[in-house]
Simulated assay, not measured.
Amino acid sequence: MRILDAAERVFAERGFDGASIRDIARAAGTQAGLVHHHGGGKEELFHQTVARRADELSGLRMDALAARKAGGDLTVHDVVECFIAPYITVAQTGGPQWLAYARLVAWVSADPRWRDIAAECFDPTARQFIAEIAVLRPGADPERIATGFVYSVAAMLAQLTSAWRIGALGDIEGDAPGGLDMLVRFCVAGIEAAVAD
């Protein structure tokens, strides 16, 4: 756990290429050999670090979606909120490691060499949410739905990792407030614009 927490922070800060096993060992307060022993090589450690929170996050999202479905008919707003709100909540209440994880996910999302990690850790859940949107927008081009969804994920990660930037541009002292409702409305509008003919 300590090694993966350290790896999460170091990879989030420096990316895969900028991080070293030695840096991770130093951050964990252990020897590099122990990091190699528990994590394998750097690439395997990166994979383990990304994967370890993915199931928990997926479970939170799927539980939110199931609860919303049990309440009646869904809207695109409901689907997007069920995807975004669990992560925003856990990032704001679950401690600094969840914010580091958001930065790590941003690295994975931005670099096609991590396609296999994204496919394993994030795509199954994303595909379920995209399918829910497709049901609500029959006849919409699946590529356009996926485009709007990926843009929404990028906006969510920006909210989590760049609140300071929003605050700076908005002349707000410190970080901007969470803004979950605004974020969801922004993403819904983007998806609706993407699927519009």
Rank of each mutant, 00 (worst) to 15 (best):
residue 1 M to I: 07
residue 1 M to C: 06
residue 2 R to A: 13
residue 4 L to S: 02
residue 6 A to D: 00
residue 12 A to M: 07
residue 13 E to R: 15
residue 14 R to S: 09
residue 15 G to R: 09
residue 17 D to E: 15
residue 18 G to H: 11
residue 19 A to S: 12
residue 20 S to V: 01
residue 23 D to K: 02
residue 28 A to Q: 03
residue 30 T to S: 12
residue 30 T to R: 06
residue 36 H to N: 14
residue 37 H to D: 02
residue 44 E to Q: 15
residue 47 H to V: 03
residue 47 H to I: 03
residue 50 V to D: 03
residue 56 E to D: 10
residue 58 S to N: 15
residue 59 G to R: 07
residue 64 A to V: 09
residue 64 A to E: 03
residue 66 A to H: 05
residue 75 T to E: 14
residue 77 H to V: 12
residue 78 D to Y: 02
residue 79 V to C: 08
residue 81 E to I: 07
residue 83 F to Q: 10
residue 90 V to W: 00
residue 91 A to T: 14
residue 94 G to R: 02
residue 98 W to T: 06
residue 99 L to V: 07
residue 101 Y to V: 04
residue 103 R to M: 08
residue 106 A to V: 01
residue 111 D to V: 00
residue 115 R to S: 07
residue 116 D to C: 02
residue 117 I to A: 01
residue 120 E to P: 02
residue 123 D to F: 05
residue 123 D to C: 03
residue 129 F to T: 05
residue 130 I to V: 12
residue 131 A to F: 05
residue 131 A to L: 07
residue 137 R to L: 13
residue 144 R to F: 06
residue 146 A to T: 12
residue 146 A to N: 14
residue 148 G to V: 01
residue 149 F to R: 01
residue 149 F to A: 05
residue 154 A to T: 13
residue 156 M to F: 07
residue 161 T to W: 11
residue 162 S to A: 09
residue 162 S to M: 10
residue 163 A to E: 08
residue 163 A to M: 13
residue 165 R to Y: 10
residue 165 R to C: 06
residue 165 R to E: 09
residue 168 A to T: 15
residue 169 L to S: 04
residue 169 L to H: 03
residue 172 I to T: 14
residue 175 D to W: 09
residue 178 G to H: 02
residue 180 L to W: 07
residue 180 L to V: 10
residue 181 D to R: 15
residue 183 L to R: 07
residue 183 L to N: 06
residue 183 L to G: 03
residue 184 V to A: 06
residue 186 F to M: 11
residue 196 A to H: 06
residue 197 D to N: 13
residue 197 D to W: 10
